[in-house]
Structures are given as C-alpha cells and as structure tokens.
Amino acid sequence: MSTHSEQSAVTVLGLGPMGRSLARAFLDAGLRTTVWNRTPGRDRELVARGATAAPSAAEAIAASPLTVVCVVNYDAADAVLRSGPASAAAEGRTVVNLTADTPGRARSTAGWAAGQGIRYLDGAIMTPTTTIGTPAAVFIHSGPAELYREAGPILDALGGTHTHLGEEIGRAAAHDIALLDIFWTAMNGFAHALALARAEGITARELAPFAQGIGAVLPPLFESYAQALDDGDFSGTDNPLTSAASSMAHIAAASEAHGIDTGVMRAAERLARRAVDEGHGTDGFIRIAELLGRR
C-alpha cells in the first residue's frame, strides 16, 4: 500500500459501480477519502473500509483539495456542482470530472467552472470497473497541463495509464465518444451476428471462436486505415467499396429471410452505395469516413 501525507485527500462524488471502484482504489492507496452520493446507502462498504461519508455534496467537496466526479451524465454532474453550496465550496479547489457525455457538455461545464473560480479538468474512463486500481485501467484527461501535473499524484492512485490529451477541455470527451462509437457499433454487430447465426442453427458458443478471429483482424486494419485517411489515400485494391456493398447486401438479405431487423446493415450498405454512385467504387472502405465528414 502506498503512503501519503495527511494532506493527500480526495473526494468522490457519485457512488455508482464506477464511483465505488474509484473510491476503493483511493482507499487502497492510503488516501484520506470522502464520499457522497445523492441516493443514500451506497457508501456503507466504503465507510467500513475507512472512507468518510459526507452529509452533502458541498461538505464532501470542502473536505478535500481535489474532487473526482463520476455520475451518469453531465445533467447529473451539473445538478450537483452548480448548486449554490457546492459551487461555493468548490471555489479555488480542483474538480476532475470523469463523467461521460459529449464534448460540448464538457466545454460548457468547464466554462461555468472558470467563471466560478473552480480549477477544472475533464476526463474519461476507458476500461471497466474491474480494472480500476490495476495496471489494466486506462484514463484520458484534458485541460490545463499544469493542473493535470498537480493532480497526477492523486490520479495515479487509480492505477493503469493516464494520458493528457491537451489543454482544449473537450478533447478527452471527444476521444471517449469516438471510441465508444467503435465499441457500441461493434457490439451491435456482434449481437446481430449471433441472432443471424442462431436463425441458421448455429449456437452462440459455436460462432464465438470465429468471431474472435474476425476481431483479431481489426487492430491492423484500424492502424492502416487511420494512416490512409490522414494521408488522403483511398485506394481499395484489395477490397473495393463495390465488394463491401455486395457483402452487406448479402448479410441483409439473409437476415431479412429470417425476419431479423436489418436497419443498421442497410444503413451501412446505403453509405457504401452512395460512395459508389459518386464514383468511388474502386476506393477502399475508409472512403466512408471522408464521406461522413463532409459538411
């Protein structure tokens, strides 16, 4: 267990599954930890481990020089932070908001915090609750570099890797939302694939090893496609968009034969055919990113 001075104190606002995991990691690191949650009762285990339960958000914030916020969204975060007593308590203190939401909401809250004299960092947690406090945890942050350096010793207690993405406050949320786009689109694809496989008499367990093989193909494709997009190289010698559109049509047709919803796949096919219709049929799939990014 790490040792810290008595001044090494932290507050956690929000005790959902992730908030409780953050508080546990701080306690395990020897930090004096104060906790608060809008719904009573979620702090019992943490108090038993040595945390101090504050009766209000304002008192929780006042107990530590640094407060970590982790609630369901920025509506909830703003409801807590922007209340009169809490915002007054936060003046001159550091708030690290690890709540997930949009980049615009992060910028809005940061602008409000600056007007209140609150030292504000935004961030996101990129790994599950079970990783918190372990080397597998991944955190991203954005905001003033000096403030990030000051908060570093406290944030390091959460384990894993911490990356400062720049001073523009919305960059962490922008990374988070883009990466979650990959995750949930992929998970939707996996769920759809399982439904289609089961309709054809293939169990989920039978398909899973082959699905993992498909997943293993993706990391090198991500790297090469990212480089191609940044370089403006849309060549599709190995897998032109015409082939991709045809494959998507086959998937949709097989699904529709079993009455399985194909809204997502048909939408993807329409994008591919739109690119083909615009004369990009021999381009690679990454042309879709350029098409979607047009204003």
Rank of each mutant, 00 (worst) to 15 (best):
V12S: 03
A100G: 10
T282D: 15
H192D: 11
A29L: 07
G152R: 11
A245P: 04
L66V: 15
A228Q: 12
G117I: 09
A172Q: 01
G14T: 07
A124F: 03
L179W: 09
L158R: 03
A191E: 11
E278A: 14
A89Y: 05
D156H: 12
A157V: 05
A157H: 02
I154S: 02
W184R: 05
G293R: 12
R32D: 07
R198E: 15
A245C: 07
S87Y: 05
G19M: 06
A157W: 00
I132R: 01
T262Y: 07
L271C: 04
N37I: 10
Q116A: 15
A216E: 15
I260M: 09
G259K: 12
G111L: 10
E269R: 13
N37S: 14
H258Q: 13
A211R: 10
Q7W: 07
L165I: 06
E91Y: 00
V276N: 10
G201L: 09
H162R: 13
G201A: 00
Q227C: 04
S235Y: 03
L165Q: 08
R32Q: 10
F210Q: 11
T39P: 09
E150V: 08
G170W: 00
A48W: 03
T262G: 12
E206G: 14
P55M: 04
S2K: 13
Y148F: 15
L121Q: 07
L22M: 08
G213Q: 12
D43W: 09
G143L: 07
R42M: 04
P240E: 06
R105F: 03
H162V: 02
L194N: 10
A199P: 10
I251G: 08
H4D: 04
S243G: 05
I251S: 01
M187F: 15
D176Y: 13
G16R: 06
L221S: 09
T134G: 12
A58K: 03
R107E: 10
V217D: 13
R294G: 05
G166T: 09
A62H: 05
A51T: 09
T52W: 08
T94M: 07
A257Y: 00
S246G: 10
T134V: 08
N239L: 14
